[in-house]
Simulated scan of single mutants.
Amino acid sequence: MFSLRQLNNHVFMPSSILQNTIIRRYAAQITSIHAITSLKTSPTTKQHTVEEGNKRKQLLERPGLFAIKQGMITWFTAKGEQIPATVLEIDSCEVIDHKTSKEHGYDANVIGTIDKLKNYPRPHELKMFEEAGVSPKHKFGEFRVRDSSNLLPLGTELKASYFAVGQLVDIKGITKGKGFAGVMKRWNFKGGRATHGVSKAHRTPGAMGGNQNPGRVLPGKKMPGRMGTSNMTDFNKEVLHVDGDAGILILKGCIPGPNKGIVRVSDALKLYGKSLNQLARE
Rank of each mutant, 00 (worst) to 15 (best):
V11I: 07
F12L: 15
P14S: 10
P14R: 06
S15N: 11
S16K: 08
I17V: 12
I17T: 03
I17D: 11
Q19S: 11
Q19V: 02
Q19Y: 01
N20P: 00
N20D: 09
T21P: 00
I22W: 00
R24C: 08
R24G: 11
R25F: 12
Y26L: 07
A28V: 03
A28E: 02
Q29S: 11
Q29E: 09
S32T: 03
I33R: 09
H34C: 06
H34Q: 13
H34S: 10
I36C: 03
T37N: 12
T37K: 15
L39G: 01
L39A: 04
T41D: 12
S42R: 15
S42G: 12
P43W: 01
T44V: 14
T44E: 14
H48Q: 10
V50Y: 02
E52S: 07
G53K: 15
G53A: 09
N54S: 10
N54H: 05
K55T: 09
K55Q: 14
K55A: 12
K57C: 08
K57A: 15
Q58C: 05
P63R: 04
P63M: 12
G64L: 02
G64R: 03
F66I: 05
I68D: 00
K69A: 02
Q70A: 10
Q70F: 03
M72V: 10
M72H: 08
T74G: 07
T74Y: 02
F76E: 13
K79C: 00
Q82C: 14
P84M: 03
A85M: 04
A85K: 05
T86Q: 07
V87A: 04
L88M: 14
S92F: 04
C93W: 03
